[in-house]
Simulated scan of single mutants.
Amino acid sequence: MDFINIAFLINTFWVAVSGVPIALLVTIVSLILAIPLAFLLAMSRIYEVPIINRLTKIYVSFVRGTPVIIQIFVLYSSIPLILAGLFEKYNINYSIYDVNPLWYALIIFTFNTAAVLTEVFRSALQTVPKGQLEAAHSVGLTTAQAYWRIVIPQSLVVALPNLCTATINLIKATSLGYAISLQEITLKAKVAANVGYNYLEAYIDIFIVYLILCMTVEYLFKRYERYLSRYKMNLQS
């Protein structure tokens, strides 16, 4: 008996690849939703907005101090209860069990990513000297204009490595979507392995697919970071 079923390994690789669009969809949409939310929460931390600042600290501590899989189970258990109550209150005739797991995944991973990016943005924004904001005010720019034109472009360069790490971690975290029956890379490969118990081959395929995905994302971020660095040098010269 062969130690590894090569034919199954090759065939299941493409099965795993078929789950890439869902993994990328969850990653991209979660980032799109989390980035503006995280920026606002980071600003509330910087300016120490009453109540919101304290709630943000609790929220970030909860996410950073608990495993992602526990967050998935807690939210996946609580969201249907909340939705069921809302459906009943507003007489919405829709079975909660018919909700596509993709929607749960988007809520869960946005919840997690926003907390991570809050600290990324907060630390990056604080690297820009306050004097630049005051100088922008002195030439007639509003606070919003100063942030958009001066503060955010500079802090983006600082935040980019951590943003890359957060994106890669989010891509890897989508592998836990199997816990809510999300048809992503891990679930598809494991289902294929159930027939002949070829789990080793399936896990190797999952490993390779995620490795390719994460290396590609890291390469793209590095290219963009080099572009921003050249742009920054041109401005300084």
Rank of each mutant, 00 (worst) to 15 (best):
A166M: 01
M215Y: 15
Q71F: 09
N100V: 14
I180F: 04
T216K: 10
G131L: 02
Q126G: 02
R149S: 13
T12Q: 10
I72Y: 00
I79T: 04
L106F: 04
N93A: 13
P21N: 08
Y94V: 13
A144W: 14
S61F: 14
L235Y: 11
F3I: 13
S229V: 15
R226G: 09
L211E: 07
L33G: 02
L31F: 07
Y231N: 15
N11E: 11
R64W: 10
N169K: 13
A124T: 00
L106T: 06
Y47L: 08
M233W: 11
V120A: 01
V158P: 01
S229E: 09
Y59H: 06
M43E: 13
V209E: 06
V195L: 10
Y231H: 13
A7M: 14
L40S: 09
Y210G: 02
Q236P: 11
L40C: 09
S123Y: 04
L228Q: 03
A42R: 00
G177A: 03
L176D: 06
S175A: 09
L141D: 06
S181G: 15
Y210L: 01
I107A: 00
S30K: 00
L160F: 03
Y104L: 09
V74E: 13
I107Q: 02
L31C: 05
V128I: 05
F62K: 05
V120L: 07
A7W: 10
T216S: 14
P36H: 01
V128W: 01
F3E: 11
W14C: 06
M233Y: 15
V99K: 06
I32H: 06
E48F: 06
T143A: 15
F87Q: 05
S18H: 10
R54Q: 15
Y47T: 14
